[in-house]
């Protein structure tokens, strides 16, 4: 067994600091998820409408957000807008804005895809039974869409959690940043700590995302 430098975790409040860092990362991602899911559902539904103007605007938004690397978006919002508009934006707020923009775009595309995958015949079958438009959505289209959305949106949520590791680039102290600080501080005392600490970081990310995957699998089974 090589020396993993795990004893560093027990020094001072290092473990506690790592956990606080994890919480910072989770806070940014979960707030963004909470904004993205409803907004994405709204925009995704709008994308299935026939209005060409709304469609074009949403398409452009989706493509821009998709093509731009998240890091560039973070820099643009954190350094670019603060300079250009002269406002004072914290790193956390900038991160939440960027991740919400990104999550909303991705979610809207998932919702659009799930909605158009419901065959036209399902709507007609409901119409033929005398159901109103609202009832067709409520009892037929939305439940089926949600079932299709669950695995897709879980994938998105875990991706959002993992991608928060980028926010250290705009000075937000989250789990990865804390890990770097700890490793840096103990470089001479335990040079091997990089391995142990990053391993712990890996495990912490895993335990943050795993319950979400488990919940998704449960829902998929129940709603199959």
């Amino acid at each position: 067994m090589p020396d993993l430098g795990l004893e560093v975790l027990l020094k001072g409040q290092n473990m506690e600091r790592l956990l606080i860092g994890l919480l910072a990362a989770l806070k940014i991602s979960l707030v963004s998820v909470a904004v993205s899911l409803p907004l994405g559902i709204l925009l995704g539904t709008l994308m299935t409408w026939k209005n060409p103007f709304i469609k074009a605007v949403l398409r452009v938004y989706l493509e821009i957000i998709r093509i731009m690397p998240q890091m560039v978006l973070l820099f643009l919002v954190f350094f670019g807008t603060t300079r250009a508009f002269g406002w004072d934006l914290s790193g956390e707020s900038a991160s939440v804005i960027v991740f919400s923009l990104w999550g909303t775009a991705e979610m809207s595309d998932l919702v659009r895809g799930a909605l158009i995958s419901i065959p036209l015949h399902q709507y007609e079958s409901g119409e033929a039974l005398g159901l109103s438009k609202v009832q067709i959505y409520r009892y037929i289209v939305v439940p089926q869409t949600l079932r299709r959305l669950i695995p897709l949106s879980i994938n998105l949520i875990t991706r959002m959690i993992k991608t928060t590791s980028l926010v250290l680039m705009i000075g937000v102290v989250e789990i990865l940043k804390v890990a770097q600080q700890i490793i840096e501080a103990n470089r001479t005392a335990s040079p091997n700590a990089a391995f142990g600490i990053y391993l712990v970081v890996f495990l912490l990310y895993f335990f943050a995302c795993w319950p979400i995957s488990v919940a998704a699998r449960y829902l998929e089974k129940r709603w199959r």
Binding site: H121, Q122, E124, S125, G126, A128, L129, G130, L131, S132, Q135, Y139, I140, P143, Q144, R147, W223
Partner: peptide, 27 residues
Amino acid sequence: IGMVFQSYELFPHMTVLDNILLAPMKV
């Protein structure tokens, strides 16, 4: 007017009974 389609078009997320009950209950 009752209509039956070539491809059945039952609602896949509901049981047989719920398929039958939906419209009489809600409409």
